[in-house]
């Protein structure tokens, strides 16, 4: 049973799920075992309503203003932003590579779509990540069942609609099993859509 650390206030607008913000930062060049990854990731906080979300988000640095190798993760409460978590282990993620300058807007649109239940895939969404890197930024959305093609197609189509991406944007789907095998989150065969 889940420990309810937060609840929506009486006049606040409740969300379908409770969510937790996480932040991670890595020194480039260091190896990342799943253990050191877990040590590098910090919880920012959990919220249960629209208003509580804004209280966190309004005080957070925009992804576009982060430097180095940093990630914000927003996952349903109880799901760790790790491939190995029970909710993620059979899942995968849609990955979108963004040229510098687009991350803040795209991240906001992505998480608003997730919090507002715009994806319409039942319990399938696990969370979303924005990854700030040197040459580009990457956003991704994780779901539970990588083999469920109807779900992954619906997530892709919703992403296209809510992100309003440039027409040449490359999207790729990667299973966490593949990420565990090749020990990298993003490099993979790209499927241009």
């Amino acid at each position: 049973s889940r420990k309810k650390s937060v609840v929506p206030g009486p006049t606040e607008h409740p969300l379908q799920y409770y969510y937790t913000f996480w932040y991670s930062r890595r020194t480039p060049g260091r190896p990342t075992s799943s253990q050191s990854y877990e040590q590098n990731i910090k919880q920012i906080g959990t919220f249960a309503s629209v208003e509580q979300f804004w209280r966190f988000y309004s005080h957070m640095v925009c992804p576009g203003d982060l430097s180095g190798h940093s990630d914000f993760h927003l996952f349903k409460e109880g799901i760790k932003p790790m491939w190995e978590d029970d909710a993620n282990k059979n899942g995968g993620k849609w990955i979108i590579h963004l040229r510098k300058g687009l991350a803040s807007r795209c991240w906001e649109n992505l998480i608003l779509a997730m919090l507002g239940e715009q994806f319409m895939v039942g319990e399938e969404i696990c969370g979303a990540v924005v990854s700030v890197r040197f040459q580009e930024d990457i956003i991704s959305i994780w779901n539970k069942t990588a083999s469920d093609q109807a779900t992954t197609a619906r997530i892709r189509d919703t992403l296209r609609r809510v992100l309003n991406l440039p027409p040449n944007t490359v999207m790729e789907y990667k299973t966490h099993t593949d990420s565990i095998k090749d020990k990298t989150s993003f490099r993979n065969t790209k499927i241009t859509l």
Partner: peptide, 21 residues
Amino acid sequence: GTRIIYDRKFLLDRRNSPLAQ
């Protein structure tokens, strides 16, 4: 059961609510 669905505009309109400060 019923799902709680909010569109982008609804969420953005709550941003400046006193409850969100």
